[in-house]
Design a protein around this nucleic acid. Structure first.
Length: 577
DNA sequence: TCTTACGAAACA
DNA sequence: TGTTTCGTAAGA
């Protein structure tokens, strides 16, 4: 950089800076100020303050190539080139956009602070590079060109796609820019050795590409670059903290400015995508030999792979897969058997709980069936009772005829005497206006009279109301004149007296439809128990499936549990032995 | 000074 | 709407 600076030593102005004696200075004014709009010379790569050379940010947008006065004096063929008006908006080419971004200057400063690599920064402005350059990507180095994550470094392992917790949230170390990424984010030694180990196992790896080699390559390239950048730069001390702070501040400005340049960015993105595709195809072609063919990955196969395949035949692919299983599976099974599986223990406990609940539910169901038959017995007995005409009169007299209540369905005022009868009919009227069905008929073995289950061909559904309560598909039987009410009488609400209501059924308002309500009560409870049993069955199935799938071939091949603490390696065996 | 964790912008 | 990755605060 200093050498370059000396090239423009005819520019007037102070060489020293306010922030630090060694901070790089720019422009004809030789000041380190980078917080304003700047433009870079496409020949010497020097940066100039817009206000010093009388170019505004707006006017710079029209410039396609810009050369400083000194370069133009030296080489008369260098001319400032402008965009045609037509293309100006369309072609907001990334190169120039970046060139005029003041934030880039801040980046330059920051980079100079961390790594003395400014010349490369200049070279990164070469036209034709399609890799997107950003604050942390020069777009030129190997890591920047890399498109795939190594899946081995700590950053990759943190990623969700590799099953990580997504806590670190950093780009693959092998993709951290050699120039602009922070040093601590780049490849660590452990990662490198890991890659080498992986390298050794490459016969088992389908998508083998030597990460370590790549790393070496890019390290070598970086080193080469460093040499080319010149020792002047290497010796240049970093910026002062104040300068660094400033640089970071300006970088923030860039982020905000980016919003305005979204259009331009999308263009850059497209270019990046193109480059990605290009790089990918390049990477692929690297695996091929001189004739453009690559070797089949099948075990000890020397044939050429088929086009768009890694193998010469399906057989080779299967052989490799089988080899993998033979190689990996026994270890995995051994590992699996060595360490206790918490999930398996939980599963067993859950099964035990489910079985207990199922037992309870079955007991309850038996109880409900017993009650069902008991009720039918009571109803049959009640029907045999003889009618007593005088009781009807007594009952009628005891009611308070002035009192009025309101129907819960239609909200009309009704006489309490006929309230039950009215509300029952009202409910039936409204209920029969709607349907309540399912596509499937009920299939519960051993259960009698639960759901209505009448098929509706229009809606192609089966009615799912309780059979005894369905006003849509069943009508209350006609009551004959001599039929007795027969409701079992009680005292203190629950205590059975052993006696039955002997009022004629037609006239008994007190026990209107008592059989229906009692039956519904029992049936509803039976349905609940069946639901419970169904739910428990489903739970059991899920737990069993999970237990069966656990440690299956696929699971064992794909996942591995690593015991980090040797003391707790085999808890079960400690207990059992 | 380095590491970890996380909000949030950018991107797919 | 989910993923990637940047910047940065907080803690070691």
């Amino acid at each position: 950089m200093d050498s370059e600076m000396s090239d423009i030593d005819h520019f007037p102005g102070p060489e020293s800076s306010m922030e630090g004696e060694n901070a790089p200075v720019y422009c004809i004014c030789r000041k380190p100020d980078i917080s304003c709009f700047m433009i870079g010379c496409d020949n010497c790569n020097e940066w100039f303050h817009g206000h010093c050379i009388d170019i505004t940010e707006k006017s710079a947008k029209a410039i396609r190539e810009w050369y400083c006065m000194r370069c133009r004096d030296k080489n008369s063929s260098l001319e400032i080139k402008y965009r045609s008006k037509k293309n100006r908006d369309k072609e907001a080419e990334p190169d120039r956009t970046e060139r005029i971004e003041r934030s880039e200057r801040s980046e330059r400063s920051e980079r100079s602070y961390s790594t003395p690599s400014t010349p490369d920064y200049k070279s990164e402005r070469r036209r034709g590079s399609k890799v997107k350059r950003s604050v942390r990507m020069c777009g030129e180095c190997e890591p920047c060109r890399r498109t795939e994550d190594c899946a081995q470094c700590d950053f990759c392992k943190d990623m969700k796609k590799f099953g990580g917790p997504n806590k670190i949230r950093q780009k693959c170390r092998f993709r951290q820019c050699e120039v602009r990424a922070r040093k601590m984010l780049r490849v660590k030694d452990e990662e490198l050795s890991m890659q080498e180990r992986r390298d050794n196992r490459r016969r088992y790896s389908e998508d083998y590409d030597s990460e370590a080699d790549l790393y070496q390559q890019y390290r070598a390239a970086g080193h080469k670059n460093n040499m080319a950048w010149g020792s002047d730069e290497d010796d240049e001390p970093p910026f002062s903290p104040v300068m660094r702070k400033k640089a970071i501040k300006v970088k923030h400005v860039k982020r905000r400015e980016k919003k305005f340049d979204k259009k331009k960015e999308s263009r850059r993105h497209k270019q990046k995508q193109k480059h990605k595709d290009k790089t990918r195809s390049n990477e692929k072609s690297e695996l091929r030999d001189n004739t453009g063919q690559r070797q089949c990955l099948g075990p000890s196969c020397v044939e050429a792979a088929r086009p768009n395949s890694k193998y010469c035949s399906e057989d080779c692919g299967m052989k490799l897969a089988a080899n993998r299983i033979y190689e990996i599976l026994p270890q995995r099974i051994q590992q699996w058997q060595q360490s206790p599986c918490i999930a398996e223990e939980h599963g067993k406990k859950q099964l035990e709980r489910i079985r207990k609940e199922q037992q309870n539910a079955r007991l309850r169901l038996t109880d409900m069936e017993r009650r069902f038959h008991e009720l039918e017995g009571i109803i049959a007995k009640a029907k045999q009772q003889a009618v007593q005409q005088d009781e009807e009169v007594n009952e009628g007299d005891s009611e308070d005829t002035d009192l009025q209540i309101f129907c819960v369905s239609c909200s009309h005022p009704i006489n309490p005497k006929v309230a039950l009868r009215h509300m029952e009919r009202c409910y039936a009227k409204y209920e029969s206006q709607t349907s309540f069905g399912s596509m499937y008929p009920t299939r519960i073995e051993g259960a009698t009279r639960l759901f209505c289950d009448v098929y509706n061909p229009q809606s192609k559904t089966y009615c799912k109301r309780l059979q005894v309560l369905c006003p849509e598909h069943s009508r209350d039987p006609k009551i004959s004149v001599d039929e007795v009410c027969g409701c079992p009488l009680v005292k203190n609400v629950f205590e059975l007296t052993g006696d039955y209501c002997r009022v004629p059924k037609r006239k008994c308002n007190k026990h209107y439809n008592w059989e229906k309500l009692r039956r519904a009560e029992v049936d509803l409870e039976r349905v609940r128990v069946w639901y419970k049993l169904d739910e428990l069955f489903e739970q059991e199935r899920n737990v069993r499936t999970a237990m069966t799938n656990r440690a299956g071939l696929l699971a064992l091949m794909l996942h591995q549990t690593i015991q980090h603490d040797p003391l707790t390696t085999d808890l079960r065996s400690n207990k059992d032995r």
